[in-house]
Each structure stands twice: as structure tokens, then as C-alpha cells.
Computed example of a mutant assay.
Amino acid sequence: MATHYETLGVSKDASGEEIKKAYRKLARKLHPDVNPGPEAAAEFKAVTHAYEVLSDADKRANYDATGNENGNGAQGGFGGGFGGFGDIFESFFGGGGQAGPRSRREPGRDALVRVEISLEDAVKGTVYPLQLRTAVVCPVCDGECTEPGTHPQTCEICHGAGHVQRPVRSILGQMMTVAECPACQGYGTTLPKPCPECAGAGRIASQLEKQLRIPAGVATGTRIHLAGQGEAGPGGGPQGDLYVEIDVERHPVFEREGNDLKAVLTVPLTAAALGTDLTLETFDGEQIVSIRPGTESGDTVKLDDLGVPRLRGGGRGDLVVEVRVATPRNLDDEQRELLQKLAALRGETFTEGKFETRGLMSRLRDKLRG
């Protein structure tokens, strides 16, 4: 494989001006407008790449040291774009040839909407009436963009190519560059009679309502993917996808933690001391919460399988009820007297405003001393 110096026909110690002069001479000789053969096009590409490397001081230094302009010791090809003069080449010749006119029919964009549901709906699942304003295929022209009974016509300027050639001046002299046809915007066809409903777009804006099935177990941030239900593309192109993001409202009683539900139940001091059964209204109806005798604030009661269904894998979390013991307030004289008697019976006394607990051993010591 020839080196970049050999490609340009210069010595390894050639100056920048000598390299530039050699490139201009070869470029004029091999330019496709002068020499349209495929071999000349390949040589022109190689010459352009060689000049792009050797005209850059850093790339030339790396190339001289390693044999490669990237400095990794491996001789590179022509991939990855040329930059500099390579970019000029790409703009002149369209990256090796135009692909033809572009289609009016393009895929639609994906859409993202957010919906807010209650915690109960997240636990049980629901069907949500989703209202969506989006683009749909034009019902009059069915995406054809033209008035019914008519058809697009071949562009008279570019003759269906979608692009035209224009002369430009460069360091190589006058050259031809390729640009999008201004008459047809690159489509290769024009619309003498655009559809009156969509003005030739092939789609219109419409308000739709979908019945969205939301499965049990969703949480805030869960996204439901509806393939092919996004907006229709231009020219009646295929629909994109629709993503629905869930936002779950806060609940006045229950709070979600993973797949468990948490609730706080306040009970009277007497109920906590003696124990009782209380009723709690849940998403699964009324449930009995059994308060054990001697329950303290912060103790919990777990109700199995009454939490949130697992979105994947089956089963449900639990309902965890935290008990808070309410301290009685605004006592009347009789209630205060009763509590004082209870404290005395339990060996709990107040001396000069300080609370003291006298247990069995303390009372035995007092007896022995007496």
C-alpha cells in the first residue's frame, strides 16, 4: 500500500507548500468533472485523504512516527470521514452519490403523556379514559397528500431526482455541488392539487380517546408502552409509539413502601393496655386489627397479603399498621383520681413533681427496714 507521500508524489521532507501544490495538480487531473471514471474517483479520494493528513501538523507527525495519522500504529483506511478537504469532497459529491429523492412518507414520532391515578387504582388496577391530541392519517386523502382523484407529478426542475447541481468556486477552481431541489424540497415530485383537508401533509391533528388498561401494581414513574399508537407520520407514515407515565396520588390513610402498604392507627391508652380488636377500612374491605395487651406506641400489626400486587412475579405485599397510643388529656377530677389510684397500685408515685416507680423489690426493702 502506497504511503501518503507516494500518493501525492512528494518526498517525506516536502514542505507544506510543496504538498499543497502537488495536491492541487493531482486534484485537477483526477476530479470527477474532468475524469469521470471509477478508478479516477478512487484515486481522487485517496489523494484528498493524503493531503488532509499531511497538511495537518499533528496528524503528519503521528503519521511519520507510527505510519498512521491516529498514532496507533495501524494503517487506517478512509472510513470515519475526512474532515477538512474530505468534508468539501462529501459536500460536492454527496458522500459518493445521491440516494435519490426522499419519500414524503416518514415514520411518526413517539409520544409521552402522563396520567394521575389514585392509590386504590394502583393497587387494584383500572381502565383509564385517556384523552390524547395527536396526529392521525388524513381521512380524506388517506395519507396520499393530494386531492382525491389526483396524483403527485414529477418535478420539472430536477426531473424526479430530488436534487440539483450548482456551480461554486473553490481553491480548485469552479466545481459543481449538489443541493436539494428548491422546487420540490427534495421529494422529486410536486403536488399540483394538495389535499384540502391536510394541505398536502398526509395527516391532521385529532382528539382521540383510548381506554387504557392500567395493571395492578403500578407506581409513580411506571411507563406503559403502547407500540404503534403514537402520532402518524408525514405522508401517512406509520405511527410512532405511545408511552404513558403513571403518577399515583397521595392517600390520606395509606402510604406505599415497596409492595407494602403502611397505615397509622391511633388507639386509646386503655385499649393499648388491655388489648382490643379494632376495625380498619382497607382497599379490600373492613379488616380486624388485633391490638395485644400492653401494646406501646410504635408497635406494628401486619396483615398478610393486603398490600400492593407485584407488577411482575405475582403475589402481594403486606399491610403494616403502626399503633400510636393516645395519651388522655383534659381529665376531670374523677378520671384523675382513678389514674392516681392506678399509679399507686402499680407502685408509681409523684414526689415533688418527679415521677418514681417503686417495684416489688423496693417495696420489700421498705418492709424489712420497718
Rank of each mutant, 00 (worst) to 15 (best):
G9F: 12
S11W: 00
S15A: 03
E17G: 00
E17P: 00
I19M: 14
K21D: 10
L30N: 10
H31Q: 11
N35Q: 10
P36V: 02
A42F: 00
A46C: 00
T48I: 12
A50P: 07
A50C: 04
A57N: 04
K59E: 11
R60G: 11
N68E: 09
E69Q: 13
G71S: 13
N72Q: 12
G73D: 05
A74G: 04
A74P: 00
A74K: 15
Q75A: 12
G77V: 05
F82D: 06
G86H: 12
D87H: 02
S91G: 07
G94D: 05
G95L: 11
G96T: 06
G96L: 02
G96A: 10
G100A: 11
R102K: 11
R102W: 08
R104V: 06
E106D: 13
E106R: 15
G108T: 01
R109K: 13
L112F: 14
A122D: 00
V123L: 13
G125R: 03
T126S: 03
V127D: 00
Y128D: 05
L130K: 02
Q131N: 08
R133C: 04
T134C: 02
V136G: 06
V137M: 07
V137R: 06
C138F: 14
P139R: 06
C141R: 09
E144K: 12
T146E: 13
H151Q: 11
C155P: 10
H163N: 08
H163P: 12
V168K: 06
M175T: 11
A179V: 15
P192N: 10
P196L: 13
E197F: 10
A205N: 03
S206A: 13
Q207T: 04
K210C: 01
R213C: 01
R213V: 03
I214Q: 02
G217Q: 10
A219S: 15
G221T: 05
R223D: 00
H225D: 02
G230Q: 04
E231G: 01
G236K: 06
G240H: 04
G240M: 05
L242M: 07
V244Q: 02
I246L: 08
F254K: 00
E255A: 03
D260P: 09
K262V: 01
A263H: 06
L265E: 08
V267W: 07
D277R: 04
L278E: 15
T279W: 07
L280T: 08
G285N: 04
S290M: 06
I291L: 09
P293Y: 09
G294R: 02
E296F: 03
E296K: 13
S297R: 12
G298Y: 10
L306C: 01
R310L: 09
R316G: 10
V320L: 10
E322V: 13
R324Y: 04
L331V: 08
E337Y: 07
L338M: 08
Q340D: 15
T351D: 12
E352G: 12
F355M: 12
E356A: 03
T357S: 15
R358H: 09
M361F: 03
S362E: 15
K367N: 10
L368A: 08
